[in-house]
Design a binder for these strands. Structure first.
Lengths: 171, 171
DNA sequence: GACGATACGGAACGCACGCCCCGGTTGGCA
DNA sequence: TGCCAACCGGGGCGTGCGTTCCGTATCGTC
């Protein structure tokens, strides 16, 4: 690859990182190109589609998340709670993580599997109500992340979700 | 108004009710017109804008919700929980309610006020954690509704949210 | 320094959608 | 029944966005 091409590729990635983090997947691609100081055509020389650029920006972060979820832990309940806490913190700071786990992609299957394992182990330890399915947990997490972008207090919201996971309601 | 005009108005409203309920605000207006068996121009003769049509379909339902939230109750905690339960049930069945309370509108202020009152009374009775603000509750509710549309089990999700509202996490 | 391959930029295309316009039609009153 | 105002349909406009095309500029080599 030519030197200027490599330079432009980095400029595009850098601009995409900033704008996807600020505004999520919905930023116009022209805006990314403008921030990078290149034309839209140049973006498409390096990434075949907007989705591909988005993946290039988010894939590593999501994969790190998946790995941290799959890692063994001696307190399964705490591990699940720590994972959700980390997820919330990351999503509150960068809007693109929420889109990355909401838009369809192959990575999602891995994430679901990892979350399923985390949930199962936590349920085995009695730390989380037993009638929760992986699908429920994923949906709950997505809803929580989106609430964060609407200005909810992250700490309070997280506490509510975590305490709600533990047991059924008091009579 | 001419008889055929009145008939068409009803056909448009009926089609809009169905499609907004199924797909939310995002259905193309042309699709609503097609389902009603009229042209797009006819829709605009009766409703100046897509938003206006959406409001015509949802306003009454939202207003009923607000009134039920504002009604006095002898058990404030149960009243708040009942309201959220009803909201979840309604939103699980009809997608447009979620959009109606997410998209900006004047009705939202009323809803926030009603929810704020409900929350305050429940907190006064000690049924809900005291550090929760109205904004937090609204964000939590929106997140819950959206989680429902992602396929979460409504019963389980609702229980999690309600039990989470009550108290902080076990140590 | 010249030349070919490579990359650039931005104008242009296709598409989807909200919204408007106008020639034709229809309803209801005289 | 005839007439006109009200109304209808759908083609068309403007906009925003993802994507593509191509004439031009730039890089790296001989």
């Amino acid at each position: 690859m030519r030197a200027d091409a490599a330079r432009n590729r980095e400029k595009v990635l850098s601009a995409a990182r900033e704008l996807f983090a600020e505004q999520g997947f919905d930023v116009p691609l022209d805006e990314i190109a403008a921030r990078a100081g290149v034309g839209p055509g140049t973006v498409y020389r390096h990434f075949p589609t907007k989705q591909a650029l988005f993946q290039a920006v988010t894939e590593a972060r999501v994969r790190t998340m998946i790995e941290s979820a799959a890692a063994p832990a001696d307190d399964p309940g705490a591990a699940l709670f720590a994972f959700l806490t980390r997820m919330a913190g990351e999503a509150a700071a960068k809007r693109d993580l929420t889109d990355a786990i909401t838009l369809p992609s192959e990575l999602l299957d891995d994430l679901h599997r990892a979350l399923g394992g985390l949930l199962h182990r936590a349920q085995g330890a009695g730390a989380v109500r037993a009638d929760l399915t992986t699908g429920d947990l994923v949906a709950l997490m997505k809803g929580m992340l989106r609430s964060l972008h609407e200005g909810a207090n992250p700490g309070v919201l997280l506490e509510i979700v975590l305490s709600g996971l533990q047991s059924s309601r008091k009579p």
